[in-house]
Design a protein around this nucleic acid. Structure first.
Length: 294
DNA sequence: AAGAACTCCTGTTGGC
DNA sequence: TGCCAACAGGAGTTCT
């Protein structure tokens, strides 16, 4: 469940269980996810205390009391399940589980000093777990060359214009490029472009004027990207599958999708009268209204 | 060098 | 009902 708002929701759910606690025991149940786990992964974590749990783009970063940081990415299907000392089990930002949870794809289990366990489950195994020196985190292979945080202070229309100037790639592709802006994914790019009334097919440079300055459309887009992400975080992210089983229920932004996964349905812009189309860009589905997104 | 295509993996869904 | 292609919230690698 992983774009920036989902990862932030997960971070907030894990923080109380993890921050300040130490790893008592770590179960690593396979040698790799998408990539091999680092050498001696479990041993390097055991005994370490988690000083802080933060987020960079779609990554979670647990800074440890030694020299290392635990870097985690959920890929497409990664989830965490927390079992607190009372034995109650839940997925941060998603829903409460019962005893019958499918544990087939539980790949890592952290047993913490406060009695909580944190289990990483990932069906497709596109996730990542890595250990990297804290001192050079920004230069680590995951973060080197990574773009600006869309909710950070540096993100602005001026920067957006600078990043997109001269870009021939479509707006959709440029917004998904983590080297430019880091944290946007397929859903929120589709939603932001709809709200901005911009076609995902237009060249990224259409929001830049001849002098390289942001056009009004860039100003709008910068504001809207921030708004969409903030709204989604507020809603606890989006939950695409399993939602019928909800009971503890965070994650309801999916009810506010205006174009994502709405192929063929009526455009929600008042007076538009168009219908949502699905096209494929860079191998991913793009949902948009060709009538009002120009 | 930028941009598009292909790849990893498992599970679900929709059309015949 | 069964079978199978298409698709799924990501991103690194390899092509053109």
């Amino acid at each position: 469940m992983p774009e920036l708002p989902e990862v932030e929701t997960v971070r907030r759910g894990l923080q109380p269980a993890m921050e300040g606690a130490s790893f008592i025991r770590v179960e690593q149940r396979r040698r790799d996810l998408r990539f091999p786990f680092p050498e001696n992964f479990a041993a390097r974590l055991t005994g370490r205390r988690i000083a802080s749990l933060s987020r960079r783009a779609k990554y979670l970063v647990a800074e440890l009391d030694g020299d290392e940081a635990l870097v985690m990415h959920l890929g497409m299907s990664g989830r965490f399940i927390v079992t607190d000392p009372s034995g109650k089990s839940r997925e941060p930002g998603d829903f409460y589980y019962d005893e019958d949870r499918d544990t087939t794809h539980d790949h890592v289990v952290f047993h913490l000093s406060n009695g909580a366990t944190v289990t990483y489950n990932d069906t497709r195994r596109f996730g990542v777990m890595d250990l990297t020196p804290r001192a050079t985190l920004a230069e680590s292979r995951h973060f080197k060359g990574m773009g600006v945080e869309p909710l950070g202070n540096e993100f602005s229309a001026a920067l957006l214009a600078q990043l997109f100037a001269g870009k021939k790639a479509p707006l959709k592709a440029a917004l998904l490029d983590q080297r430019l802006i880091a944290g946007l994914g397929n859903i929120y790019v589709c939603e932001a472009l709809f709200r901005a009334g911009l076609s995902p097919r237009k060249k990224a440079s259409v929001i830049v004027d001849r002098k390289g300055a942001p056009k009004p459309s860039a100003e709008a887009l910068a504001v809207i990207i921030r708004e969409v992400l903030e709204e989604a975080i507020e809603a606890g992210g989006s939950t695409l599958r399993d939602y019928a089983q909800t009971d503890g229920s965070l994650g309801y932004f999916q009810h506010r999708f205006r174009v994502y996964d709405r192929e063929g349905e009526a455009c929600l812009k008042p007076g538009c009268g168009g219908h949502v189309k699905r096209i494929v860009q860079a191998g991913r589905s793009t949902f948009y209204c060709a009538t009002c997104q120009k």
